[in-house]
Amino acid sequence: MILDIDTKLLKKNAYRVTKQRGITALRIRVPGGDLNIKYLDIIKEIAEKYGNGTVHITTRQGFEIPGISMEKIDEINELISPIIRGLKDEGVQIEDEEGGYPAAGTRNVSACIGNRVCPFANYDTTVLALKIEKLIYPNDYHVKIAVTGCPNDCIKAHMQDIGIIGQVEPIYDPSRCIGCQACVKNCKRRVTGALTFENFKVVRDPNRCIGCGECILKCPTSAWTRDEKYYRIVIMGRTGKKNPRLAQTFIEWADEESVLKIIKNMYDFIDKYIDKTLDKEHVGYIVDREGFKKFKEEVLKDVKLPKKAKVANHIDYTGYRYERNTIYD
């Protein structure tokens, strides 16, 4: 059997070169980790008929169907066309529905379960994930984005190139406060201690408040209520063999419009500064090379941040280097 396959195209088509010659695996995108149950039948069919009867749930919340013969790619692409059409119906720009996934560089936008289910979430993460998907997919640049409902950061937004963390501005009505201090005690124990109790009422230090909304949840009388939704944008977190590091705050108290525009602008930044001699270059390494200042200028182009927003002046990435940070006995 002759196997003459353009692996670059194969990878772009969301298939993988595996350790077993001629055998590939397909990654199904699940934006926001939220999938209509009807698509499970298709995934099941492929896994049973073409794969090895198993499905792997990826770290980015997709489904990976292993054990597929490379020869069957066209057939499978036809089979998954309803899933691709589903993305298109949601507004993702895809031309050829029958040709499988048009790109794989920009990874699935993952999300925690968000406020459809979780009481802590400050917004609907599924909706935002899909809005981002529409904005950036298909795209070949290797970018990882995740959105999470609150600073608990269950999706690990701090491990992404762009992480979006839900914030809420808590509004305090002192006349409704009975002074039980449930919020004060909780903020001290579980958050940043932004609340203090003075003159029988609660005082919030806006510089310490991270907008998690726990005070609102703890309040028995609704003395704390929700106001506008905001987002913290953390950037350039990563794993990898070179320099793993947590993402750091770029902007806090951003609005949704700014979040989307900044993400869009980041793709222009990548386009402008990526080292085209390389096979691929992660955005974090581009920022490392070009500098945070340049990145900031480029991505904030035409962005109208809300008044409340705070933009980092400087980011001091410490990160971690395998060869330097460990001292052995």
Partner: peptide, 15 residues
Amino acid sequence: RLKGKGAFSDTDLVT
């Protein structure tokens, strides 16, 4: 009904 004033996000408070 106070829109969006429920303790959980995107919920209302009836009071």
